[in-house]
Design a protein around this nucleic acid. Structure first.
Lengths: 247, 247
DNA sequence: CGGTAGGTTGAAGTGCCTCAATATGAGTGG
DNA sequence: CCACTCATATTGAGGCACTTCAACCTACCG
């Protein structure tokens, strides 16, 4: 299950450098981190809420969700992690998993031992700042997510999820024209938008009927972005942060 | 509006030291930070979502909320900040306000210029880690909040809010017996639980009728904590983190 | 071809919303 | 000390978005 594959670390470096400027020396320090990769099958949850954490998880391929569940077993997806995301970033500073992690599709993960990560963070303060900044960016997405499930209609929530994922896939360059691949079933979409699978299906079909988008075989085709953005009340600012405090 | 009052910095130091061990030298560095304090009247919002940020805001007295609003004007409270909290912690690394800030009661705030804060963070890496850790703890609360408004009934949501605030006030030692002061109107409670003021009132009265708690004159009296915790499906673990990674 | 996961449809029930009115209580000025 | 005002709290009645439960359909796979 574990293989040595340090080459993939540059994928996370790219992500980090997107938001925080790093010197050549700092980049080398990150690439020199120990790491290993592993594969998880679709549907398997590999971290449970409250677990002790001793390594950071970076998504290399596939789609991962952070989730929580209530006592009665209903599951809510709190965040989606795509290629390049450190899925448990909010957890690593607490040494305890804040939420569970589940593979929504088949995924490959990259694992970085926490002691090594913290050692680098202390040796290179600006790397610590970069990780902290990435965590803050995640928190901003998190907050938009909470706002989404709180005050909006099912249609608006679903539209918002498509907008967010479309925008994030665009940033990573994996959007194909007006569409993108979203490796989720309708049931998972329902867990992410906090509505019933049945009602999600109806809502999705209503977006289809209005000619706004279509989703077949886990491929989202958006025909009318302006209409989708309007339905979602989507403001992409929370996703795009300039390089901040680059002193 | 601005006064020099460095003495109050120790309040934030206390908070920080609660989660992260700090040496005497690091403590001195924090206490030496420049700062100023100001008062805000109840109901005034003093930071808008998207604003540029050049200082950090610590709550000294009163209650502050992070909020977002949708295009149609409905407001959602995303987080509550009590004495000792850095209200815009998720924002400072992005140099842009992730949410608005509003004074729910009369409040006094402490302001710390960001350049000074970052200078100290770079000079003392463990201070950066401490701030990062506090941000992560906030993110955990944030996630529980999102889970709360997503999948639960109005009664459960409201109960959860009382549980969280009760537990947080207990940590700061400002809980009086079975009750605590919660400086919010029913309308604000409605914004925090993402339900209608009318329905919030009915939900609150139902908790009253069941003998679980009472709230009068902004004073919450809990008669039956076990029942409240059960109604909320409350798991306090997300609020209490051990001192982590104290290498 | 049977089994299974994901998707679609129908019909009835309900938790919460909406709008609208009234009550309460604290603060203010006469 | 009362009259007035305003924010806050409470109550009523009707409507709808979403849920619930149940069936059926489709596609993929061994």
């Amino acid at each position: 299950m574990l293989t040595n594959d340090t080459r993939t670390l540059d994928r996370y470096l790219t992500r980090l450098a997107l938001r925080s400027p790093l010197t050549q020396e700092e980049r080398q320090a990150i690439l020199a981190l120990p790491s290993s990769s592993s594969k998880k099958a679709a549907g398997s949850s590999f971290v449970a809420s409250g677990d002790e954490i001793d390594h950071a998880c970076v998504v290399l391929t596939g789609l991962v969700s952070s989730f929580k569940q209530t006592r009665d077993g209903t599951r809510q997806i709190m965040a989606l992690h795509i290629c390049g995301d450190m899925a448990d970033l909010p957890s690593i500073m607490l040494a305890e998993a804040v939420s569970g992690l589940e593979a929504l599709s088949d995924v490959t993960m990259l694992h970085i031992p926490l002691p090594a990560l913290f050692a680098v963070s202390e040796a290179y303060p600006r790397i610590a700042l970069a990780l902290w900044r990435d965590g803050a960016a995640d928190a901003a997405i998190q907050m938009a997510w909470a706002n989404n499930v709180g005050r909006k209609s099912a249609r608006s929530r679903l539209a918002h999820l498509f907008c967010e994922m479309g925008a994030r896939y665009e940033q990573t360059g994996s959007r194909v024209g007006l569409g993108f691949e979203l490796l989720m079933t309708q049931e998972q979409l329902a867990d992410a938008t906090a509505i019933t699978p049945v009602h999600l299906n109806r809502t999705l079909m209503s977006l289809r009927a209005d000619g706004i988008l279509d989703m077949r075989n886990k491929l989202v085709q958006v025909f009318d972005w302006p209409a989708l953005i309007k339905a979602a009340d989507f403001d992409p600012r929370y996703l795009s942060f300039r390089l901040a405090n680059a002193h």
